[in-house]
C-alpha cells in the first residue's frame, strides 16, 4: 500500500556535473513509501548518475536529496545500510552456492546467524529452490539468478530497493514472475526505484519519471502520461519525449 505522506526519497534540485558536462540537471521529485517508481530515459540521459547519487555512491555537485531520511551529502554510509541494490550486471557471486551467497549478504548487513537461516529457508521455499541450495549460482539459469538476486537485495528487509535494469535479457515468463516479486515487496511496504528498457514494464509502475538530457521531462502515473501525450502506449510517450534529446554522447 502506498503511503503518500511518507516520503522515502526526496530530491531537491539534485545536480551532478563532470567538468562542464551536466549529467544530472536540477532534478526534483519525491517517492512515497510502498511506491513503485519507474525511472526511464535513453542511454546517456543521466539515469545511472542520478541513481548512484541516491544510493550514496556518488556525491552531488549541488542540490539536496534524502533517502530513507538520510542526507546523500553527509550520511552515505547510513543510506547504504538501509537500502537494497540490484543490477543486471552486479548480482551474485557465481562461484558461491545459493546458500553461501545469502549467508554472505546477510553477514554484510549485520544480520545474526539465526536471522540469516530463517530468511534463507523462507526464500528457498518461496522460489522453489530448496533442491538447488548447494548449487553454484553460476550454473543456474539466468531467470533464476535474477529472481535470486532480487531476493538477496531485499534479504535484510531494506525500506527502499534500487533496481537497475533488473530484467534485461530475461525470458518473458520469468520477467513477469520477477515483477510479481516486485509487487509483493511493494505490497509489504518496500519502496521500489526501478529503471528498465522494457516499456511495458513502465506500465507496471505507480509513477514514471522520464529523463531527457539530464532533466526530468515528465513525471506522472502511466495513465496520466498517456493521456497527456495522446499515446496508446508508454512506448509512444517515451519516444515522443526522448526524441527531444539533443545530447548524443554518454
Amino acid at each position: 500500500m502506498i503511503e503518500l505522506n511518507t516520503h522515502m526519497i526526496t530530491a531537491d534540485k539534485l545536480t551532478k556535473q563532470f567538468g562542464d558536462f551536466t549529467a544530472v540537471d536540477q532534478i526534483s521529485f519525491d517517492v512515497s513509501k510502498g511506491e513503485i517508481f519507474g525511472f526511464l530515459g535513453a542511454n546517456g540521459a543521466g539515469k545511472t548518475t542520478a541513481m548512484r547519487m541516491l544510493c550514496g555512491l556518488s556525491l552531488p555537485t549541488s542540490g539536496k536529496a534524502s533517502v530513507n531520511g538520510f542526507d546523500v551529502n553527509t550520511e552515505t554510509e547510513k543510506i547504504k545500510r538501509s537500502i537494497g541494490y540490484m543490477s543486471q550486471k552486479f548480482s551474485l557471486y557465481e562461484d558461491l552456492t545459493v546458500r553461501e551467497n545469502m549467508r554472505f549478504y546477510g553477514g554484510i548487513y549485520g544480520m545474526t546467524i539465526p536471522q540469516i537461516k530463517l530468511k534463507t529457508q523462507y526464500i528457498l521455499e518461496h522460489l522453489h529452490l530448496e533442491k538447488e541450495k548447494d548449487t553454484l549460482v553460476g550454473s543456474l539459469p539466468l531467470g533464476w539468478k535474477q529472481k535470486l538476486s532480487f531476493s538477496v537485495a531485499i534479504f535484510h528487509d531494506p525500506s527502499i530497493v534500487f533496481l537497475d535494469e533488473p530484467t534485461g535479457g530475461v525470458d518473458p515468463i520469468t520477467r513477469r514472475e520477477f515483477w510479481e516479486m516486485i509487487y509483493e515487496a511493494a505490497h509489504k511496504g518496500t519502496t521500489i526505484f526501478v529503471t528498465t528498457h522494457y516499456m511495458d514494464e513502465a506500465e507496471y509502475c505507480n509513477r514514471v519519471c522520464i529523463m531527457v538530457d539530464g532533466r526530468i521531462e515528465a513525471m506522472d502515473t502511466p495513465a496520466n502520461l498517456k493521456k497527456q501525450y495522446e499515446s496508446a502506449h508508454m512506448e509512444d510517450v517515451f519516444l515522443k519525449l526522448a526524441r527531444k534529446a539533443t545530447r548524443i554522447a554518454d
Binding site: 530515459g41 535513453a42 542511454n43 528498457h197 516499456m199 519516444l239
Partner: peptide, 10 residues
C-alpha cells in the same frame, strides 16, 4: 539492440 534505448532501437 540489447541494452539500447527505445529510440535507438526504432
Amino acid at each position: 539492440t540489447t541494452g539500447v534505448d527505445a529510440v535507438s532501437r526504432k
